[in-house]
Design a protein around this nucleic acid. Structure first.
Lengths: 434, 434
DNA sequence: AATCCTTTCGCGCAAGGC
DNA sequence: GCCTTGCGCGAAAGGATT
């Protein structure tokens, strides 16, 4: 259909006509004559509608007064000075140092606060009329701050000269100091040099200038607090999900881990893996490897099962406290006061590469032709009655509460690495970083 | 497996041992004995590692002095008052209104600024020794702002009582007003009620309270700029995708629209729909429906085809410039200087409901047993040779550039409504709003 | 280091607004 | 009355000059 004839239209317009609302129309698609750029000029369809239904421009529009009319009074009405003002809003503001005897309009109220500590006579409470008296609101720090920010936004590099600002905003420089000091305290601003400050922006709206992530101490604390709260929420959610999943009777039969599952974890590739099954209060102690290659486990609530999963031999590499098996694995059991104390020493060739693993979920395992590792523990024998070739490694107990997570990670890993199987990436948290 | 025996361990630990890095271990899962809360005390496994590899606590830690020692001087050293001070940092700060004659240490400098405008004698420049003189910096607005923020972070709900704050920070309330006013100007804070302000935080760390997106003007401009850029990016991406899809030869055979497709668009339900197929420069003019129910189309690059799709009769409702057909549809063709001018008037019963439509994609159409509407235009006859019952409505031309979109939407609709089929929801943009 | 000038800004009075 | 806050004095801090 490549330009079969000059009569080939190249746009399709769907015009919906519902009753009298003729002005509502839809152009489904429209497109030029493509690649073969025959028409050098842009081709497009113009839709001309009556003014009444002019489509809202999707342009950004700044709500408050935009640059240029900085002196509007957004929230409050104008004043009613001596009587001829709209009368809405606040009553007239009196006292104003500058309007001493001279009543020249718009007298630069202050310049740099320099030599103008002269007049201060007896504040004439009622100035004639013209002098645009400002309400208290008009000169408020809050409003001034807004104006100041606008000004700041104006400059592309985010740098602003205070004298200039004071001039434009027609305020004493003193007031700007109030603003800059506070903003600096929140690290939204930075003193660049004498009379010059620079906008830093909040960590996300960075732009213009050295975007050091906002590090105001106060802000940081706040943000971290927020973050913490969010994480708490996430943890709660995750815990809940897991609990739900585990409680669900339908899932019970999948609640186990096979040797395959473990071996499939990429980050454990070529590693000597020891699986420990123990009561929750069990203590796992790992002394500095420089001293001795040992792991101490102690439990007072029940027995500890230890399994060794090597990479090569898929069968019968399991070991437990009762039937230790491998040469380099020594498992001893001592009986302490009110508990057992096991200690074992391991040895193996290492390999440091750690990728984000694709830890196979238990459910996943049901599809694999598992080459199981049979646990030799007697206490597990009951679970061993599993269909087909899936001999479970160990089964999971249902509930999983937040404070039961205990993690040990590589240096390169973060907490998120433990949550791979929960697909943390789809949770809102990460999306915050765009 | 519901508590089959007391020998049932309730945790599984996977200990990875890579070479000598014994301290690197992973606990795959760990969970307590669930629902049947037999153990009232918390169950968990402790991992004890040597100090050298102590895991960084994931807790929030306040960098600056945390509450309680608010009077440290983070950036500057302390003063060297009369001589016995550390001598580093700034020279001694003199003047301090409160330290008149009495030199009682830590005299509450101010309370609420109430009745304490008494002493102010002749600032005794050198106070004996003990009075912890403060440098100008110590009492600076900037520092105070930081402290203030810390305090704010302390409260979980982000609400802070000013009197309380003034009390804790040992400053006149007046100073806090300076801070709150400015912060309010930047919308980091909100006046909640008399004596109470609330933290709003930057738009992303929202939480706790009505999270009005931060609307400081300066901030807003910056954020909108970002947003604009992001949208530009999205548009570019979308355009590119569409172009790719259209150019892909494999997709060519699906590049058409059937009568079914159009009728399937929910928002067009019970509407009189007119499809227009015209060159891209075609002008579509819709006068105010109050004046006349007319649509004017004009093209100078090629013929215009107009199709009427009514809801009921699936067959032969198509119309084009040459063979007009329906009573209420008048299509006239005039020959202007270098173009054609068509004008048509339509009439129909309306229906206002507009839902987010599920505009069927062209590809989708291949599965439908379409009841096609055959276009009567001669120029289209070539495309009519389609397999089976799928008589295409009109075929698409490949390229589709961004400025070739021309949209006409209902008032209730937004631009996104046009992008439904691209599943804009899965794009990062929306995720920003958590 | 003494002097002077400029910039920064603590501070609290008193006006404004309930 | 109380809370809020504009306002500007005057001192401190930071150069610049000699």
């Amino acid at each position: 259909m490549r330009k079969g004839g000059s009569s080939f239209p190249d746009k399709v317009i769907l015009s919906r006509v519902g009753g009298s609302s003729l002005d509502k129309n839809i152009v489904l698609t429209s497109f030029p004559d493509r690649l073969a750029a025959n028409y050098s000029s842009a081709n497009y369809i113009q839709i001309i509608t009556p003014p009444s239904c002019a489509t809202q421009p999707s342009n950004v529009c700044v709500p408050d007064s935009s640059a240029g009319c900085l002196y509007t009074t957004p929230l409050q009405g104008s004043t009613n000075g001596t009587g001829q003002r709209p009368a809405l809003g606040r009553p007239p503001a009196k006292r104003r140092l500058e309007l001493d005897i001279t009543d020249h309009q718009y007298s630069e109220p202050a310049k740099t606060g320099r030599g103008q500590k002269a007049a201060l006579s007896l504040k004439s409470p009622k100035a004639p009329k013209t002098p645009p008296e400002k309400t208290r609101y008009d000169t408020s720090l809050g409003l001034l701050t807004k104006k100041f920010c606008q000004l700041l936004a104006q400059s592309s590099d985010g740098v602003l000269d205070l004298n200039q600002a004071a001039d434009i905003l027609k305020v004493q420089k003193r007031r700007l100091y109030d603003i800059t000091n506070v903003l600096e305290g929140v690290h939204l601003i930075k003193k660049k040099s004498k009379n010059n400050i620079q906008w830093m922006g909040c960590s996300l709206t960075s732009e213009g200038g050295p975007l050091h992530p906002d590090q105001s101490l106060g802000r940081e604390v706040l943000e971290l607090t927020q973050e913490e709260r969010r994480l708490d929420e996430l943890i709660k959610t995750c815990s809940h999900s897991v609990q739900q999943m585990t409680e669900e009777l339908h899932n019970q039969k999948y609640a186990y881990v096979t040797y395959q599952d473990i071996r499939r974890i990429k980050s454990l590739k070529d590693q000597t893996v020891i699986a420990v099954k123990a009561p929750s209060e069990t203590k796992l102690e790992v002394p500095d490897p420089k001293e001795s290659l040992q792991v101490h486990l102690s439990s007072s609530q029940g027995p500890i099962d230890v399994f060794l999963c090597t990479d090569d031999s898929p069968f019968h590499n399991g070991l437990d406290v009762n039937g230790n098996h491998a040469a380099f694995l020594k498992v001893s059991q001592e009986n302490g006061a009110g508990g057992t104390m096991d200690s074992l020493t391991v040895n193996g060739s290492s390999n440091g590469s750690v990728n984000r693993n694709d830890c196979a979920s238990p459910t996943d395992a049901s599809h694999s032709s598992a080459t199981p590792m049979s646990p030799l523990t007697s206490s597990l024998s009951s679970i061993l009655q599993q269909p087909e070739d899936q001999i479970p490694f160990v089964s999971l107990s249902p509930a999983l509460l937040s404070d039961d997570y205990m993690l040990g990670l590589d240096d390169e890993q973060g907490i998120s690495d433990l949550f791979d199987s929960y697909d943390l990436d789809t949770l809102p948290l990460d999306d915050l970083l765009v």
